[in-house]
């Protein structure tokens, strides 16, 4: 395999919790705690897991929106965290982000053309060239150049998300982080936006880091998937393999919990109940992070943390026991 576009090694994002009389550090939230990820050129890698697992924090650390406490983030072979700030900011212009909520992502006072042109203005592109580029971008995302004078409140949720996508494309990024890009949209609009995201990637060849809790969407759009639990990756591999034959007990429970939109199939599936609660990241379990909810856990799982290990089927699993195959979904 050629050099990956993005390679993250040992990423940690720890937030100090201050308190007490003197406001000193009394605890540390380990939101991301030892995280490795690779994204190839033109590839879509999905990061999945439940709320609080650290997937958005990991995405933000890669984008530089949150400070990494430790680790390396190689972008085209260069460790961003080792660069001087100005150079790092310049490199990061090649990464863009699409958030869940297109309403708060756009300034309501600006026309959508101005919003889309903003990153170009920051990059010092002259206004005539900018106007032409914004027109192209509006066409590319299916809104049409003539719509540029409209304001966000005149647009539907799906149209606003198209504006956000156009803005992300403005500087021709190599990596786009999509954080729950369709979760806030109506069901009938989601497939339009997913198709647009897939088409743009085919046309321009950039990579996606696709953060989502919606596993049906992830299975559809991702080449590879990484499953996060309590700040670390517990299973990763080609999306097809991970979904067809999940081997970490958490991945199995997660996939089994998605209700299938087919009543006969859904009602004949075996239950893989996952009881209990996500442990507090302030006080994570020793050993395997999943040990408190795992139906297979043994003594050694309570003592030592399992490393991600190849399964032989092209996936990697951080589990000493590797749950037996449950066969193909559904």
């Amino acid at each position: 395999m050629s050099e990956p576009l993005l390679k993250v090694e040992g990423l940690r994002v720890h937030f100090p919790v201050r308190g007490g009389l003197l406001g000193g550090e009394i605890a540390v939230v380990k939101a991301v705690d030892g995280f490795d990820l690779e994204i190839g050129v033109g590839e879509t890698v999905a990061l999945v897991g439940e709320s609080g697992c650290g997937k958005s924090t990991a995405g933000n650390a890669i984008l530089g929106l949150t400070r990494a406490s430790a680790g390396k983030i190689f972008f085209e072979g260069v460790d961003l965290l080792g660069l001087p700030p100005a150079e790092r900011a310049r490199r990061r212009r090649e990464m863009q982000v699409i958030f869940q909520d297109p309403v708060s992502a756009l300034n309501p006072k600006l026309s959508i053309a101005t919003s889309i042109g903003e990153p170009l203005a920051i990059a010092g592109i002259a206004s005539a060239e900018r106007r032409a580029r914004v027109g192209d971008l509006l066409d590319i995302v299916g809104l049409g150049a003539a719509q540029g004078g409209r304001h966000p409140n005149e647009l539907s949720g799906g149209q606003r998300q198209r504006v956000v996508i156009a803005r992300a494309l403005a500087t021709s990024p190599k990596l786009i982080v999509c954080d729950e890009p369709v979760s806030a949209l109506d069901v009938s609009i989601r497939s339009q936006i997913l198709n647009l995201l897939m088409r743009l990637q085919r046309e321009f060849g950039f990579s996606y880091l696709f953060i989502s809790h919606d596993l049906s969407v992830v299975r559809h759009i991702a080449d590879r998937v990484a499953v996060m639990y309590l700040g670390t990756i517990v299973e990763d591999g080609p999306a097809e393999r991970v979904f067809a034959d999940p081997r970490h007990p958490y991945t199995q429970a997660l996939i089994a919990a998605i209700p299938l939109p087919d009543p006969r199939a859904q009602r004949s599936r075996p239950d893989v109940p996952l009881d209990g609660e996500l442990p507090s990241p302030l006080d994570p379990p020793k050993g395997c992070p999943f040990v408190t909810r795992c139906r297979l856990a043994e003594d050694r799982c309570r003592v030592r943390r399992p490393e991600l290990t190849a399964t032989g089927a092209g996936t990697r699993v951080a589990c000493f026991l590797r749950a037996p195959s449950r066969g193909t979904v559904p």
Partner: peptide, 25 residues
Amino acid sequence: RLLLSTIPRLDGTRKADLRTVEGTV
């Protein structure tokens, strides 16, 4: 009919274009 056909399915063809409902609500 359209609503049901737009949903990505766990047993559907990956990466294929999804059915869409044209326009907006």
